[in-house]
Amino acid sequence: MANGSRQAAWEFFGTELKRRREDAGITQVELGSRVFVSGGYIGQFEQAIRKPQLDVAQRIDGVLQTDGIFERLCRKLIDDKRYADYFAEVLELERQATAISEFEPSVVPGLLQTPAYVRALTLATHPFAADEFIEDRVAARVERAQILDDATRPVYWVIVHETVLRIPVGGSHVAAQALDHMADLAGARKVVLQVLPFSAGAPANNGSLRLMQFEEAPPVAYTETSFSGTLIDDPAMVKRAQRAYDLLRGAALSPEASLALVRSAAEDFRRCTPTT
C-alpha cells in the first residue's frame, strides 16, 4: 500500500472512530480513560495524526461494542507485505515512537540506508529476485525513512559497530555514499550517531537491538536476526535491554569522534573506487 493510500486509510479509521464514539454518546476524554490513553490521544487518532497500537484498537472495540472493526482495520493497515510478518507491528510502533535508540552490529540501520545500499542488501539475500521485488524493497525502505523528515520525528540515537564502516556493501562507491548519507543526517542533527570501535572489545549486545519509547505507552525493545525478530514488552526484559544499550553507549566513541571516523571510512572507500 502506497504511503498516500495508507494515510487515507488511517483517515478513514479516524473518521469512523469519531462517528462511532459520538453515536455512543462518549466524549474523547471518557473513551480515553476507558482504553488507558488520554482524551487528547483519542483526538489525534480521529485526526489521523497518530495511529493506535493494536491492543488499543481492541479495547476501543470493546468499549464501543463495534464487533472488532477497529482491530481489523488496524491489522490491515500494519500488514505490509514488503516486510517480514514479524516486523509488521514494529513498523507501526516505529511510526508512533517519540524516541528510538538503535544498535546495529553489521549493517547501516534501515532508517539511514540509501536506495543503492538497500538494493545491494536485497540482492545479497535474494540473488534471483525480479527487479520489481527489489525495487519494492527499496521503495519501502525509503518510505520508512520519511519519519526522519516529519515535524514530529522521534529523537533518534544510533550506535553502529565499526564493522559497519568497513564492509563494502554494494562495492566501494555504494558503501562510501551510504556512510556519507549517515554522516550527513548526523550533521543535520536528525540522528545522534556513535560508533562502537574495534578497540572496545566484546560488545554488551551481539545482535541488533532497538528500544522505542512512546508518549503514553510503556517502552518496548526489539531484537532481530537474519530470519526472525522478537518484540519485547515485558518490563523486566525491556529494562535489561536498556541496560545493555547504556553499556554500548558508554563504550562507544563520542558523537564528534564517531562522525569523524564515519567520514574517514567513507574517504577510504572512495580511494578504493576505480576512476574512469
Rank of each mutant, 00 (worst) to 15 (best):
residue 242 Q to R: 15
residue 26 I to L: 15
residue 257 A to W: 10
residue 200 A to E: 00
residue 164 V to R: 01
residue 262 V to C: 12
residue 113 Q to K: 02
residue 62 G to L: 14
residue 186 A to G: 12
residue 142 V to I: 12
residue 87 F to Y: 04
residue 232 I to K: 05
residue 22 E to Y: 13
residue 60 I to C: 14
residue 265 A to S: 15
residue 10 W to S: 02
residue 109 P to N: 01
residue 9 A to I: 11
residue 59 R to D: 11
residue 128 F to D: 15
residue 66 T to M: 14
residue 234 D to L: 04
residue 264 S to T: 05
residue 227 F to R: 01
residue 84 A to F: 03
residue 100 I to D: 00
residue 265 A to T: 05
residue 259 L to G: 07
residue 147 I to K: 00
residue 191 V to W: 05
residue 152 T to G: 00
residue 119 R to E: 12
residue 245 Y to N: 04
residue 234 D to V: 03
residue 59 R to L: 10
residue 206 N to D: 15
residue 164 V to I: 00
residue 95 R to V: 09
residue 160 V to Y: 01
residue 11 E to Y: 08
residue 52 P to R: 08
residue 188 A to F: 07
residue 106 S to R: 11
residue 42 I to H: 08
residue 158 V to M: 02
residue 43 G to F: 06
residue 105 P to N: 09
residue 154 P to H: 04
residue 85 D to C: 07
residue 147 I to T: 01
residue 195 V to N: 00
residue 9 A to Q: 10
residue 123 L to I: 05
residue 199 S to P: 07
residue 276 T to R: 12
residue 56 V to H: 04
residue 186 A to H: 15
residue 227 F to I: 10
residue 257 A to M: 06
residue 178 A to E: 05
residue 162 E to N: 09
residue 173 H to R: 12
residue 209 L to I: 07
residue 218 P to L: 06
residue 205 N to L: 14
residue 151 A to N: 01
residue 137 R to F: 15
residue 230 T to S: 03
residue 50 R to S: 12
residue 276 T to M: 14
residue 206 N to C: 06
residue 6 R to A: 07
residue 188 A to Y: 10
residue 217 A to C: 00
residue 186 A to V: 14
residue 66 T to P: 06
residue 18 K to W: 12
residue 133 F to R: 11
residue 38 S to F: 07
residue 261 L to H: 05
residue 143 E to T: 13
residue 260 A to L: 07
residue 190 K to T: 03
residue 80 D to V: 01
residue 175 A to F: 01
residue 146 Q to K: 11
residue 133 F to K: 11
residue 105 P to M: 11
residue 116 A to V: 02
residue 213 Q to P: 07
residue 80 D to N: 03
residue 104 E to D: 05
residue 70 F to K: 13
residue 258 S to L: 10
residue 275 T to Y: 02
residue 42 I to S: 02
residue 144 R to W: 01
residue 64 L to C: 12
residue 18 K to P: 06
residue 19 R to L: 06
residue 173 H to A: 15
residue 176 A to C: 06
residue 36 F to E: 09
residue 266 A to S: 02
residue 120 A to V: 02
residue 94 E to C: 00
residue 75 R to I: 05
residue 134 I to Y: 14
residue 77 L to A: 03
residue 90 V to G: 04
residue 149 D to V: 03
residue 97 A to R: 07
residue 18 K to N: 09
residue 58 Q to D: 15
residue 201 G to L: 11
residue 274 P to I: 11
residue 6 R to T: 05
residue 75 R to E: 10
residue 251 A to Y: 12
residue 108 V to N: 00
residue 75 R to W: 00
residue 232 I to R: 00
residue 205 N to A: 15
residue 78 I to V: 06
residue 211 L to G: 13
residue 220 V to W: 01
residue 222 Y to V: 03
